[in-house]
Design a protein around this nucleic acid. Structure first.
Lengths: 100, 100
DNA sequence: TTGACAAATCGACAATCATCTATATAATAT
DNA sequence: ATATTATATAGATGATTGTCGATTTGTCAA
């Protein structure tokens, strides 16, 4: 099971915003609609959609339409493997791996 | 040996630039002066100094003056532990650890 | 088909940021 | 002291980006 390679710049850019990290944090262990996320944060709905698009392009969230809603969830596996890859590239003397 | 906590937004922002990642890549396993880095990249010296300052603020590089030169090197340990911490926060189901 | 709700897109605006040139500071050698 | 080399800082500029309000698109129920 080989995780596909990511672009480390794109990954870091996707991560490099406070609002996006808040979105990732609340999507972490639950599936949420866009409105759920809007309610949880203090930003407008188009802003949330904008950030979700960036996170999705980076492969960090997945989405699924359920009726009128679109449900987002964080791709933890992708996130973990991306972190590993960053460490692999920039900290080869400290290789990371997923803890069993 | 507990690594100090980082701010994951600052960490990601420091990482979120192609030039900075190039700098990190070449500083990875060698100590380089600012001029060495300038020669290796295609950017002006003040630009390199600017990026080094950002990397240093994030704790990702260390510096040491040696005569006229200032020698930079990548803080691999910090980088690896920061990657772990990001995974810890956003991918708790896939905890990372440094591979012995 | 019409209305209501959910989410995405558009366009504008302000803020952030990467880059440059010019200049200042620091260290050394003559 | 002065010149030279190395790096940092200052200030300007253009590009990117986060945010918003307005609108469009998509889905379902009446």
């Amino acid at each position: 099971m080989m995780a596909e390679d990511i672009n480390t710049v794109d990954f870091a850019k996707a991560l490099a915003d406070g609002t996006r990290q808040k979105i990732m944090a609340i999507c972490c262990c639950q599936q949420l609609s866009v409105n759920d996320i809007v309610d949880a944060l203090d930003v407008a709905q188009p802003t949330v959609s904008h950030h979700l698009k960036i996170l999705k392009s980076a492969g960090l969230v997945t989405s699924e339409r359920r009726g009128k809603q679109v449900i987002y969830s964080l791709n933890q596996a992708r996130l973990a493997s991306s972190c590993c890859q960053v460490a692999e590239v920039f900290a080869p003397e400290y290789p990371l791996e997923i803890q069993e």
